[in-house]
């Protein structure tokens, strides 16, 4: 029963559907599970490939609660530095639906607890 409940309990607001467009929590370590044998691994996962990097790395950033935007180490808003601007030639391949943010997943539904704050 607990396993069923955790499929939606971590969604902050949505109805109990377990399908809900939550962003992947930043800093969440990737799961280390090993794929099952081909006889049981879901066939739909056969096409999975390792997510390529966009080559874009933000060295230092923090969220500025006063200005309500992300800023770099010098306090300059990131959207003024073009470091994270979603331009067509820099878009990630993670998902065209969800474009430029590497860590953005359209319908991330946390089925397992992730590390606490």
């Amino acid at each position: 029963m607990i396993a069923e409940l955790t499929s939606f309990a971590e969604d902050p607001i949505a109805s109990d559907s377990a399908q809900f467009p939550l962003a992947r929590p930043m800093g969440t370590p990737d799961n280390t599970d090993i794929p099952s044998h081909d006889s049981v691994r879901p066939w739909g996962l056969r096409g999975m490939k390792i997510l390529p990097s966009t080559g874009r790395r933000i060295r230092t950033w923090r969220y500025d609660h006063e200005r309500q935007v992300a800023v770099d180490g010098d306090g300059t808003p990131l959207n003024k530095t073009e470091m994270v601007q979603p331009t067509a030639d820099k878009v990630t391949s993670s998902d065209g639906d969800e474009g430029p943010m590497e860590d953005y997943i359209y319908d991330f539904a946390p089925d397992v607890p992730f590390p606490p704050a």
Binding site: I34, S39, V40, L45, G47, L51, S94, D95, Y106, D107
Partner: peptide
């Protein structure tokens, strides 16, 4: 659903795939 998973310490993703004999012959899973 989502076209990404987290596994083996990394993120993986899947796009639309054309089916052919190679993947229709082995439908395990």
């Amino acid at each position: 659903g989502a076209n990404t998973i987290s596994e083996e310490g990394c993120r993986k993703l899947s796009w639309t795939r054309m089916l052919g004999p190679d993947n229709l012959d082995d439908l395990r899973g």
